[in-house]
Amino acid sequence: MIFITGCSGLVGSFIARRLLAAGHSVRALRRKDSNLHYLTDIKDQIEWVEGDVLDVSRLYDVMQGAKQVIHSAALVSFTPKTKDLMYKVNIEGTANVVNISLELGVDKLVFISSVAALGRRKNTEVIDEKAQWEPSKFNTHYAQTKYLAEMEVWRGHVEGLNSIVVNPSLILGPSPWERSSTQLFKYVWDEKKFYAAGSLNYVDVRDVAEIVYQLFVGEHTGERYIVNAGNISFKELFEKIAKTFNKRAPYIKVTPLIAAFAWRGALLQSFFTRKPPFISKETAYMSQKHFYYKNNKIIDTLNFKFKPLQESIDWACTELAQYNHLSV
């Protein structure tokens, strides 16, 4: 039996789908209020258990009998209000999964990290798996939590837990509007005017799931792998999404000065609406930058071919339109 955390999220749900298609039995951790909409076709095939990665006693109970573990649960946030909780969930939660896996004699742990955990530094635009973390203004608090979570995984590996770390870039796929990368699709659908000057790295969630599966069933251990299909400017990405949605693409370039005003305005707005700001100081700053994450290692290891970006966009837009009852 394979135990998965974060199964109700975009990545976890597609990993579960891939495992079930291959005939594996899956037990998945979920919170009581988890949205399972994108799992309607397979949710009855999954053994669901309620719990939380911070509840050690409950986690120990529900992980009994697991032969392998895929740890995908994480909190992604760039707002000060949830920073402390993010550190607790991402680092302490991972430590709990590692410790219980060691105690129960789990055969293999696959940790879904992020390219952010590799760190970003001044005068370094191309990054690979050999990158060494160092404190930098280019690293967000989220990046630091994922880096420290990786340290827990590597500590577990040294203690005898076969482990693999997967570092995806921005993951494209259909999920609720308010979640992670899907907010970019919502931004274009709403015909917002501004686009950031920087670029981003991207990967189709189906490719992430396939790579995790192949690494999981193979003999790979003690390695990390960047999972990234390519790099594209915000402007070009928005234009591609807009064309698919038949919407007007953002057309005003955001300068550093505009970005500074934007995050401050968003913070003030959130004070009155009680909702997380749509942009933070961290995201405003990073949206002006260019970094590229090399994918040579995973391509060579698995002889893998990533899906074309337009195929990923067309698929995500179609799924999102159906889910949100949109006319495209």
Score class of each variant (00 low, 15 high):
residue 220 H to T: 12
residue 206 R to S: 08
residue 196 A to D: 11
residue 206 R to N: 07
residue 225 Y to C: 06
residue 246 N to A: 09
residue 199 S to K: 10
residue 239 E to F: 10
residue 234 F to V: 04
residue 150 E to R: 06
residue 193 K to H: 13
residue 235 K to I: 11
residue 146 K to N: 01
residue 179 R to L: 15
residue 203 V to Y: 09
residue 195 Y to N: 07
residue 222 G to S: 12
residue 184 L to W: 13
residue 253 K to R: 15
residue 195 Y to M: 13
residue 151 M to T: 05
residue 167 N to W: 06
residue 245 F to W: 11
residue 157 H to G: 01
residue 191 E to S: 09
residue 149 A to N: 08
residue 227 V to P: 00
residue 221 T to Y: 09
residue 248 R to F: 08
residue 181 S to D: 14
residue 167 N to A: 04
residue 159 E to W: 14
residue 216 F to M: 11
residue 168 P to I: 07
residue 200 L to R: 02
residue 165 V to G: 04
residue 218 G to K: 02
residue 200 L to Q: 08
residue 168 P to G: 01
residue 145 T to A: 05
residue 175 S to K: 15
residue 155 R to Q: 05
residue 249 A to C: 08
residue 164 I to L: 06
residue 206 R to E: 15
residue 182 T to G: 11
residue 151 M to S: 10
residue 198 G to S: 02
residue 192 K to T: 04
residue 241 I to R: 00
residue 224 R to D: 07
residue 244 T to E: 05
residue 246 N to I: 10
residue 248 R to T: 15
residue 153 V to N: 02
residue 149 A to I: 10
residue 195 Y to W: 09
residue 188 V to E: 12
residue 247 K to P: 08
residue 217 V to W: 08
residue 250 P to M: 09
residue 248 R to L: 13
residue 242 A to L: 05
residue 160 G to M: 00
residue 209 A to L: 04
